[in-house]
Design a protein around this nucleic acid. Structure first.
Length: 431
RNA sequence: GCGGUAUUGGUGAAGUGGUUAACACACUGGUUUGUGGAUCCAGCACGCGUGAGUUCGAUUCUCACAUACCGCCCCA
C-alpha cells in the first residue's frame, strides 16, 4: 500500500459516519434546550494560547502538542483541546461586554490533536464535544452544566456512568494544600515512583493521580484537599453537592481527582464508564470543571468560566459496547430497474422525477440483468421498484412493484412525471 | 518516549523454506433471452504490510521501517 493515513488518524466511512451524526445531532438538540449556542474557532492557534492556558508543566504542553512554525515564522499549534481557543475568541470578540447576557453559553464539536501513542479510544486526531459558560460564579452553573452532560448521555441511552466531583478550591486553598501535600510527600520521596518524584515539586497534585500501586498506598494517607478549602470554596462545593442532590443526580466526591490541565479551580468533575471497550477500570469520557482565572490569563477581564469536553471516540466505543445504534434511516423509496441500454435515458429521467417529487430513488448503472437489479433493490430495502424495458418504453408505461407485497401494476409514464406523489399513494398505500 | 503482540484477497481467515497460497462470506456470471434474501455450477490474491539480507530457492528465517492493538506514561 503506497499511502496510508497518518498514525493515529481514522477515516470515518459511511456506516460509521451516521453514528457520528446521530451523536452530534443529539447534542445539538439537547444543548439547544439548555440554550447553549454553537461556536466555531480555528483548528490551530498561536502556540501561546495553549501554553498559557494549559500550564507550562502540563503534559499536553510539554510533550503532546502538534506545533510548528508556518511560512511567516509564526509558532502555531493544532488545538489539543477546545477550551483555550474558545476563551481566546471570547476575549478577542469582547464577549465579556456588558450588553452580553451572562452566562455566555457556547458549545463546540470538532477535531483536536495530541501527539500521543494511539490506543483504543485515543487518537492523535480525535474529536470532542464541549461546552463553556462564561461570566457566572454561581454554583448553579456548575450543576446545570454537569446536569446537561449527564442528560446528554441519558438521551443517548448510555448507562452505568459515574459522576465524580471534587473541588480544587481557590488560590488560597491551593497554596495551603500544595504546601501540606509537599510536606507530607517529601518524607516518602525515596519510596515514590520515578514519575511521581519528578512531579512532586513541579505539580504535586498530579502525584495524587498516580496509577503506581505503591504511590497509591502512600497517597491514601495524604491530606485531603477538602480539609483545606477556604470558607468560600467550601460554600461553593456545598452548594454544588446540595443542588446535585436536589436534582437527584447521583455523584461521589473523589478528593484525589485532579485534572490534566492546570487552569481548573473549584468544581471539577469527570463522568466515567467502566466499559471493557475502553480498557480496564474506569475511563473518563467526559471531563470538565471551573476555570475562574483562565479568561484573565488570556488577556481578558476577570471572568469565571465552567465547561466540559466529551471524547467522541470513547463515547462511540461505549455506544457500540452497549449496543446502542443510531436510528439510521435513509429509506429508499424507489429502485428503478432498467432492462437494456436503450432504457438508460428513461431510467435517468425517472429517478430525477422521483427525487424532484421529494422521494428517494436510485437505479442501476452497470446494465445488469433484471435479477441482479431486483436483488439489489431487495438488499437496499427499496419500498418500490419501477421496471422499464423495451415494451414499456414503446408503450410509455412503467411496471410498478410493491416490494413488500409483490403486487405489480402498470402505470403510464405520464402519471409518474406529472404526479409521482399521488401515484405513490395510490399504488403504494401502506398501512 | 519505553515495552509486548500482530500484519495473508473486498471481508473473516488456514497454511508451507521449493512447481497450482485451503476454506467461508461478499461480489460477478450461469442454471431461469425481463423480477427479489433458496439450490447447484463457475469466476474472483501476477500475491502473502514496506524495504533489505540469509538461502540454490522465502509468503514462511533475520534485521530495519510503517501501521494496528495491548501495557506504561498521560488523558477525552
Amino acid at each position: 500500500m503506497k499511502y496510508q493515513r497518518p498514525k493515529g488518524t481514522a477515516d470515518i466511512l459511511p456506516g460509521e459516519s451516521e453514528k457520528w451524526s446521530y451523536v452530534e445531532d443529539t447534542a445539538r438538540l439537547l444543548f439547544d434546550d439548555y440554550q447553549f449556542h454553537e461556536i466555531r474557532t480555528p483548528l490551530f492557534e498561536n502556540f501561546e494560547v495553549f501554553s498559557r492556558s494549559a500550564g507550562d508543566t502540563s503534559d499536553v504542553v510539554t510533550k503532546e502538542m502538534y506545533d510548528f512554525h508556518d511560512k511567516g515564522d509564526r509558532h502555531i499549534a493544532l488545538r489539543p483541546e477546545g477550551t483555550a481557543g474558545v476563551v481566546r475568541a471570547y476575549v478577542e470578540n469582547k464577549l465579556y461586554a456588558p450588553e452580553q447576557e451572562k452566562p455566555y453559553k457556547v458549545f463546540y464539536m470538532g477535531q483536536m490533536y495530541r501527539y500521543e501513542r494511539p490506543q483504543s479510544g485515543r487518537m492523535r486526531e480525535f474529536h470532542q464535544i464541549g461546552v463553556e459558560a462564561f461570566g457566572s460564579d454561581s454554583p448553579a452553573v456548575d450543576v446545570e452544566v454537569m446536569a446537561m452532560a449527564m442528560d446528554f448521555f441519558k438521551q443517548l441511552g448510555v448507562t452505568n456512568l459515574k459522576l465524580a466531583i471534587n473541588s480544587l478550591g481557590d488560590k488560597e486553598t491551593r497554596a495551603a494544600y500544595h504546601q501540606a501535600l509537599v510536606d507530607y510527600l517529601e518524607p516518602h520521596m525515596a519510596e515514590l515512583s520515578e514519575d511521581s518524584q519528578a512531579r512532586l515539586h513541579k505539580n504535586p497534585l498530579r502525584v495524587l493521580d498516580s496509577k503506581d500501586k505503591h504511590d497509591q498506598e502512600i497517597v491514601a494517607d495524604a491530606p485531603s484537599i477538602l480539609d483545606f478549602l477556604t470558607p468560600t470554596a467550601q460554600n461553593h462545593l456545598d452548594s454544588v453537592t446540595s443542588m446535585l442532590t436536589a436534582l437527584a443526580i447521583p455523584f461521589e466526591v473523589d478528593a484525589t481527582m485532579v485534572r490534566g490541565l492546570d487552569y481548573y479551580n473549584h468544581t471539577i468533575f469527570e463522568i466515567e464508564s467502566q466499559s471493557p471497550a475502553l480498557g480496564r477500570g474506569w475511563t473518563t469520557i467526559c471531563g470538565g470543571g471551573r476555570y475562574n482565572g483562565l479568561v484573565e490569563e488570556l488577556g481578558g477581564p476577570e471572568t469565571p468560566g465552567f465547561g466540559f469536553g466529551i471524547g467522541m471516540e470513547r463515547l462511540l466505543l461505549l455506544l457500540q459496547d452497549q449496543d446502542i445504534t443510531a436510528p439510521i434511516d435513509n429509506p429508499l423509496d424507489v429502485y428503478v430497474v432498467g432492462i437494456g441500454e436503450a432504457t438508460n435515458v428513461e431510467s435517468l429521467k425517472l429517478v430525477q422525477a422521483i427525487r424532484g417529487a421529494g422521494f428517494s430513488a436510485d437505479r442501476d448503472y452497470m446494465d445488469r440483468k433484471p435479477k441482479a437489479q431486483f436483488k439489489t433493490a431487495d438488499r437496499r430495502h427499496a419500498r418500490m421498484t419501477m421496471t422499464i424495458g423495451e415494451q414499456e418504453l414503446t408503450d410509455q408505461t412503467v411496471n410498478v412493484k410493491n416490494m413488500a407485497t409483490g403486487d405489480q401494476t402498470t402505470v403510464p409514464l405520464s402519471e409518474v412525471y406529472t404526479d409521482f406523489a399521488g401515484m405513490f399513494d395510490k399504488y403504494f398505500d401502506e398501512d
